[in-house]
């Protein structure tokens, strides 16, 4: 039992922090620009492919720097020539614009790298088992992911709350006119924010690429879970995103460990024979079986009982 709890906690935290790494850029863009970037997972995919291409030429470490910068620049161009144009048509238009972008980026990636998975590997310098708990190896690369996620969280928090740039950016969201009058270029601030957010997605891509499968459908497969993270956490709240990521990671991991179904709960009574007929399929479904769907159930529950999300500050 102790083994299950310890191993599940560790796995849950590692997975949760990976989720946070992927979702952090989405939260940054939303909290500062009010735009939910549906193409976030696509930029994450771009990051993974750029990371793959650069690391096989120059190595993993240069890729970790160069790929996010490149993707960030692409993101800034997208903001400057696309998003800014549709901004005046409102949030629905912005959402739809980023939705259209997902198709274009996926097709572009397929054109360059094909449709099959590419062989993107963990760098040799991090390819060893860091420690072993109950004969389960924990690879060093997973710890590296954990460290990067924590570092990004702290850096973002400090930047937003403690620096001048953070203050200006926050002010630009609520009072763009006033910030503009104070001599700051609001458009450029938004462009930078979008670039940074998208760059964060790319960092996640470079790092998650070797752990997961780097393939042209990776964006579509990952997509929805990130939105669950930011909505459950409270749209725009960085701390909320962290809590939600960990929560989802732990819930999902612990759920896998339990093979309990309704049938087990009711045992063999007369009532259960009746219920079995009426509930049919649901009757024998175990919690473990639906573990990966739990985040979506969580999403619906949170929105019913706490519409602003766990740590959200406003109702949008």
């Amino acid at each position: 039992m102790l083994e299950i709890i310890l191993v599940s906690t560790l796995n849950g935290v590692l997975y949760g922090m990976l989720l946070f790494l992927m979702a952090s850029g989405l939260t940054v863009i939303f909290s500062m620009m009010g735009v939910l970037n549906l193409a976030h997972a696509s930029f994450y995919m771009l990051g993974a492919f750029f990371g793959f291409e650069i690391s096989r030429r120059l190595g993993f470490w240069p890729a970790l720097i160069i790929a996010p910068v490149l993707v960030g620049l692409i993101g800034m161009a997208v903001e400057r020539y696309g998003l800014r144009r549709v901004h005046k048509h409102g949030h629905v238009a912005e959402l739809l614009f980023t939705f259209g972008l997902t198709f274009v980026i996926t097709e572009m990636v397929e054109m360059f790298w094909g449709k099959l998975p590419v062989d993107y590997r963990v760098p040799p310098s991090l390819d060893f088992a860091a420690f072993t708990v109950f004969s389960v190896n924990y690879p060093a690369f997973r710890l590296f992911v954990l460290l990067i996620s924590v570092a990004i969280f702290i850096a973002l928090l400090l930047t937003i709350k403690r620096t001048r740039i953070g203050l200006i950016v926050q002010a630009a969201l609520t009072h763009p006119g006033m910030v503009g009058m104070l001599g700051h270029n609001v458009d450029r601030i938004f462009m930078l924010v979008f670039g940074v957010g998208v760059g964060l997605a790319a960092i996640a891509g470079v790092i998650a690429g070797p752990i997961l499968i780097t393939q042209s459908n990776m964006a579509a497969l990952l997509g929805p879970i990130l939105f669950v993270v930011v909505v459950v956490g409270g749209l725009g709240s960085l701390g909320g995103a962290l809590v939600a990521s960990l929560l989802i990671g732990l819930v999902q991991t612990f759920a896998v460990a339990f093979n309990v179904s309704l049938a087990d709960l009711f045992g063999t009574s007369q009532l259960s024979a009746v219920l079995e007929v009426w509930l049919a399929d649901i009757w024998r479904v175990t919690i473990a079986q639906i573990a990966p769907i739990m985040p979506y159930i969580l999403l619906v529950l949170v929105l019913i009982f706490r519409p602003r999300g766990l740590m959200g500050t406003r109702d949008t």
Partner: peptide, 28 residues
């Protein structure tokens, strides 16, 4: 209960929920 972005996300979640459940609930 919500509009705007939150509504879009809830419908996304419901869509995922139903589509995933559909493969599990094989009788219906």
């Amino acid at each position: 209960k919500r509009a705007g972005t939150a509504f879009a996300m809830i419908t996304l979640g419901i869509g995922e929920l139903v589509a995933s459940s559909a493969l599990i609930l094989r009788r219906f």
